[in-house]
Every structure is written in structure tokens, then in C-alpha cells.
Design a protein around this nucleic acid. Sequence first.
RNA 1: GCCAACGUAGCUCAACGGUAGAGCACUGGUUUUGUAAACCAGCGGUUAAGGGUUCGAUUCCCUUCGUUGGCCCCA
Length: 642
Amino acid sequence: MSKVQLPDGSVLEAAERATVRDIAEQIGPGLAKAAIAGRLNGESVDLSTQITDDANLEIITSKDDEGLDILRHSCAHIMAEAICSLWPEAKLVYGPAVRDGFYYDLDLDEPIRPEDFQRIEQKMSEIIAADTPFERVEMSRTEALEKMAGDRYKSDNIQRADGETISFYSHGANGFQDLCKGPHVPSTGRIDRKAFKVMSVAGAYWHGDASQKMLQRVYGTAWRNKKELNEHLRLLEEAKKRDHRLLGRQMDLFSFHDEGPGFAFLHAKGMIIWNEIIDFWRSVHRKYDYEEVKTPIILNEELWHRSGHWDNYKENMYFTMVDGINYAIKPMNCPGGLLIYKSTRHSYREFPIRMAELGLVHRYEPSGQMHGLVRVRQFTQDDAHIFCTPEQIESEIVGVIDLVMELYKAFGFDDYHIELSTKPEKRIGSDEIWEVATQALANALEQKGIDYQLNPGDGAFYGPKIDFHIEDCLKRSWQLGTIQLDFSMPERFGLVYSDKDNTEKTPVMIHRAILGSLERFMGILIEHYGGNMPLWLAPEQMRVLAISEKTSDYAVDVCKRLKNAGLRCGVDVSGEKIGAKIAKTHSDKVPYMLVVGPKESESDTVSARWRGRRETTSVGVEQFIAIAHAKIDDKSLELAFE
RNA sequence: GCCAACGUAGCUCAACGGUAGAGCACUGGUUUUGUAAACCAGCGGUUAAGGGUUCGAUUCCCUUCGUUGGCCCCA
């Protein structure tokens, strides 16, 4: 007889050889029916697991996130069986649950094609309909290795598994079995036949190692019921509409061409957004006491040998030759900044020197990496290099974090995560220096009370870094800002300053970018707003729409007055009907539509409606100008007035 | 870079071994319009590029380039 404590604190007596399922039944038949697995002393287990001792137990249903994960993981097994029955030569590698679904990696020479998905789904449906139980078999590691001898993937998985007990799960009439630590749903029928879908297939390296064989990774999605699946599919469709690549074309902001893969062409409207971002960026940097510099794009190759880029970054660089001399196209701005520093003598009294640069860099990216504006081969970094004394490091980093927060907040980004990346394999500088630098970054984060994720081995080659990441509409994570501490570069370049005691010392250098790449930032921003840019960023802030050509003159006049007031105003005096003009303006995502007819013409007003709203508001022209200016100055996200 | 798919008019997509089509956009005309798309006509393509198979290729095969989804990397 064991005592089982439930999450609410109550204690149940468990009968001899009682299973998790039995306890669920003791609690209530409804729960027993909904149960998927249990959490026994904090560990996830099958419903069939026996309770042998006093324990804490929680029943997991599909309502729990973990329950959903288990459901998806079981669905991955079902898909694996389906695929193996269609392609008996397929070797299974690894199939976990992931966000929104699951995948299974397979070694199979014949490519699985999207046309095959329906066949796979059909097979999965049959397996689910058969509703056979998932059965767990345990054995020792040695036995498991023997059992899987000849299967390099499963043998490898066994060797990597924790603990000495290795488990297999089987289900289905044909005895499909797979190495797995579980837990699983009690039987295949617990998956909703109408709530899963095979989504895509892609290549994936074994162990993520590019030198290993490429496997086929089949992605699927699975939900509690059909309604949730449909909602998920709908959200994917919605996300596609927010894709900056699509909006960039629709809104005429930028384009890409075969003549320059990975090099963005910014159109006139895109440049308006670009310049607004930069104007704001400059104003904030002035406030934080930064100076701005500009360094050349092409510099002698020798400089890059000195900086360590040649040894550590050559594969990502472009080179050129002029007058028989080798030059490199800069992939980073730091060496140029160092030369500026060196061009005059420096005293500790000047420190910290905060030298910002909107620097255009080129980095060679393998062709499969490019992605709209967020992954390009040429981009503008909102870079800065801070030269300071060791004592100033922490306060400078805190200052940069404050600046990051202020900039992100203005764009409405509250949802980002921070990573601290440490010493990589390819690096310059001593271990001791790395330790000090890494600690300084960690201290600053802790001082600000910021949660962060540790990324061992992911630092830049010259120092550890703090990165700021944000997600795009398809939930892909992108790095924006970065703060990198560097003790090595100043030494390599022989940077010095005169200290209080009149000795020469080497300054510390902090590299930082906040928006990261302006191209990427703009791409993320477009998705963030779904193309509906706030007034201060909108390429066309308002458009005057004439009811008919009879009021064209007034419309043109109003537009002119708004332009003279510094507003970005357009006018539509075409022969279209007013309904068509409104529809067009709306699809162009213009914040304000100002309709004018004879009535407005007489009273010097406009009939205003704003993006997303059908009602109109009559407002005087001068009054509207004042309202618009106020909203632009506030960087307001809200268009409504009245 | 690797695996897979895709590339047809400015955009979104048809046609799939037998003369390449539609909607939107654009141009001209009719309409003079009161709040989410009036009507008519016209313009627009060596079907990404190159090679091969074939009487004939947009369609089948190969190569290159580009794009998309992943993997590995990264701002």
C-alpha cells in the first residue's frame, strides 16, 4: 500500500500494483478518460506505469502543454510507422515533438515528396483507427545495444541515452517498435484523426553536423482536435500575409534581383522608412553622448591580417584588387574605428569615447542562407565602438542596455530574449581575458535584473557577447542587437591612452549594435506591424481623395498645404469612384484618408477616416495638420483622434 | 554550402508534348461619381538561361542561375 500525493495536497491510498491509470480512475472517471500520462515524482511516465512506493503524482491530460507534447511525440511514432510501411528500407533516426508539432529524421535514399504526404496521412489514419496500445519494453543498455546492433543510428541513440535502462515502444498490428524513452499516449486512437497533418520535408544533417550524411526530416503538426488544427493553419496563412518579402513587393518598399542575390534594392518608399529610423536613431544617440564617424568600405588586406579577420573570418569576406594591391571589402567596422582612434593621442579624461557608425558591411553568405531583408550579403550595421577603462566596462554595458531598451520600446518591441555567448573555439586572446570579459557581461545583466540564456561557445572570435533576439511572424528567431567585449583588438592594434599616473595603458573596446542590421530591422518591423506602419514611419502618411473631378482643385490644394506643413501626403484625383479610391488607399495601407467634395471645399475641412475604420470624422484642415504633427512627434501607434 | 521543391506578362495564377490564357496593374476612351474596387478597348511573354531527346518542348532529360522550406552558420 503506497500513499500518493496529488498536486492539490490530498493523499490517496494506492492499491498493490496500482498504475497511474488506476489512480486517475480513483480520482474520477472523467479524468481517467482524459488522462494521457502521469508525472510521478516530477518525471513523466506512461499511464501503465506502476506505483511501487509513496509518491507525488500529477495526471497529465492533453490540456497540459506537456500532454500536448506527448501527443505530438506519439504522433511522430505513428508517422514513423506509416513511413516505414510505405518505404520499408527507411531507417529511423530521431523523432521529437517540437513547437506546434513534431518531426522525424529518416535515412532513406528515395526522396519523400509533398505528393506522398497524403499517402502517409492515410496510413497514419489507419494506424490511429486501429487504436492499438503503445507498449513499453525495458532492457539493459547492453541488451539494447545487442538488439540494435547493425543500426548505427539507434545504437548511437542508445549510447547517448541517460541511465542504464533503455526502453522501446511498440504499437500497431505489425509490431512496429522504436527506441524511445517515452512516455506515450496509451493507444494510437488517442490521436485525433482529423487533427494532424504532414507539413513538409527537408534535409537535416545527422547530429547537425555538415560532414555527416544528410537525412530527410519530415515535419508534421498535431493538435488536440480539428478546430485547433484549423486555427493553427489559419494562423500560418495570416503569418504569410505579414511576410515582409510579400509586403515589401506589395508596398513597393524594396526588391531583390538576380543580378545581385542577397543585395537589397531599397525603393523610394522604403527609403522613407529607413531614413525615419535613422533620424530617430541619431537623436537617441546624441542623447546618450555618442559621436558619429564613417569609415571606408574597402581597406587594404593587410589590415584584416592584423585584426585577426583573415584567420577567423576569411570565408565570409569579399576581396578585390586595385593597382596590384589586395583589398578586402569590410565585413565589420571595427578595424576602421581603431584607425580613427589611433590617429590622435588619447587621455583617460576623454573616456568613455562612444564612436557610432552606420557602417555598410558585406559578408559572403552561402546561397541557401539568404532570406529577404533579414539575411542578406550586404547590410548596414548601427555599429558603435566604445573605448573605455576597465573600471568603466560595467557602467558602459549598463548604458548600452538602457539604450537598447529605449530604442526597442519606441518600436513597440517588448518581446525579445537575451543570450550570453561565451568563448568559441576559433578565437584570439588568452583564456584569462575571456574569463574577465565574460564575467563583466554577466555582471551587467545581473545588475539590470535581466534574464538571459547562456550560449556556451557562441561568442565572436575576439570576445564574449550579449545578443538580443526577436521573432518574425513565422516564429523564426533573429538576432538584432549585440554587445561584444573586446580586450584583444586594442592590443593587436597597439591602442593606448595616458592614464592618471601618466603611463600608457591599453583601452577596453566594446563593440555594439542595437538594431543590428538596418535591413533586418526594417524587415522585422514590417512584419511586426503587418505593413501597417505607424504614422511617423508610413511612407505616405495620408492621401486626399477627391469625390469627383469637380473638387480636384481643392484636393490638390489641401495636399499642397499638408506637404508644406511637412507631412507626407498623396492625392488621388483620378477618374475612379470614391469607393474605389478608398479601397485602393486602404490596400496601400495609408494611415489617413481625407475625402473631399463640395461640402468640405466650402468649409475648408476634410472628411477623415483612418486605416481599418469605416466611419468618418469631419475636421478642419489646419486642425488635422496639428493632430498629425502631434502623433508623429509622439511616435504614436494610435491613429484615432476625436 | 547541403537536401527537397519551384521558376509562365509588372503582380497572382492557368495551360502540361501540338499556334501560351485569365484577373489585377498599366495605356486610351465612356462615366462625374459622397465612403472598401463602374464599363469598353488596348498594351504586355524567345514560358529564368544554356544544352539535349523529339517531326514538334513551356511541358521530358541534363547543366547553370535564382527563389522557397529546412539543416549547418549568422547581424
